[in-house]
Design a protein around this nucleic acid. Structure first.
Lengths: 199, 199
DNA sequence: TGTTTTCCAAGTCAGTTGTATGGCAATAAG
DNA sequence: CTTATTGCCATACAACTGACTTGGAAAACA
């Protein structure tokens, strides 16, 4: 055998090149040749690591959501030992917003995938698989808030969780469109949580 | 001259064919030939009415948002003579959600345009031009609610308007992905307005 | 009846797309 | 040393794209 190559590392590098292209020109504007050029490799080499474009797209999506999840996990680790549900929710939500360049790229790519998923049966599964888990996570935090007497018992955890997800998503949209400012978005979410946690 | 043709009607028919294609396969999957075939005309005929693909895309977008605006206006006309701000907000928001097939198509196409606008300087202008107006409209309704003593004075009209827009948008996303049901979305918005209008 | 303007069909063109192929270089195993 | 395997590349290919050109049919006006 020739020199041994770290296949996964190569695939990740290619996926990151795909993100950059998708971020600048959209997913449909990312041809295999473009991605290869962005990654600094030849088309043949790219095809050596991904036997089809679809395989590359799916890999890049799972890699992306994995990274996002990891970022959130790391941020939550930075909180005080037993973090309050409110802090957990705030930090999670803030991490999902496109407030820095890396997160902006991630969100742009995520949205590109979302739109493709609307017309692509296979991608749809991958695209929405994380939502129920996130919703359950939020609902658990709200339930904990109720148990601690920080949230009114009249609030339905599952409904409030969906509300929070939708709100984050909508604000993400308008942040990307530059219709609203980062400070504004943060303030709106902060106020929303403030009202949820009556303390 | 030959048979006189209603140019605008032809252009609208072509735009509607474009919507159907974009709804099923995405905007990038809509080639001129596909659109022509869907409209039941030849490629040459289509090019007679739109000198470039870009012109067709822009026309179809403005036609779409015009129709949506008209639908909302018509729905508001059906309310009692002096409608309460709360009713105005509820009916407007409900009309924007993808709850019937027509609205679902409209929202799918709208999102396809939105994503393209993220990477297309020219389209961006068209895509976000309606947001400030909608926001101002919502804010006015909330201000009216405050004046009538139906909304607490502690609520900031402009912030609440942005919140409502973002929430509607997020729920639209998850409705289209079939992560949440129409009943659930309606309930969430209803409850949100219920909390805003303390009466 | 001719003329002119509008409408539209078919074909062509250069460019791009995803995929497939043949072959070369490097290296570990025999 | 031989050989098989892996990494990689250049090229080719068929399909498709948007734009353009040509020419002719149809109908209103002279």
């Amino acid at each position: 055998m020739p020199k041994r190559v770290d296949h996964e590392a190569r695939r990740r590098a290619i996926a990151e090149a795909l993100w950059r292209i998708a971020c600048a020109r959209g997913l449909d504007g990312a041809s295999l040749r473009d991605v290869a050029a962005e990654a600094g490799i030849s088309l043949g080499q790219l095809q050596h690591y991904f036997s089809s474009k679809d395989e590359m797209l799916v890999f890049a999506l799972k890699y992306l959501s994995g990274l996002a999840e990891e970022r959130i996990r790391a941020r939550l680790m930075g909180l005080a030992a037993p973090p309050s549900p409110r802090d957990v929710l705030r930090e999670t939500v803030m991490e999902m917003l496109p407030l820095d360049e890396e997160s902006r790229t991630g969100n742009l790519v995520q949205i590109a995938y979302f739109v493709r998923a609307l017309h692509d049966e296979r991608l749809r599964g991958h695209a929405k698989e994380g939502v129920p888990a996130l919703r359950a996570f939020y609902a658990d935090q709200i339930r904990a808030g109720i148990a601690r007497g920080e949230v009114e018992t009249s609030r339905a955890p599952d409904a409030e969780a969906m509300l929070l997800i939708a709100l984050t998503d909508g604000l993400t949209t308008y942040l990307l469109l530059e219709v609203c400012t980062p400070e504004e978005a943060k303030g709106l979410l902060e106020d929303h949580l403030e009202r949820l946690f009556t303390r």
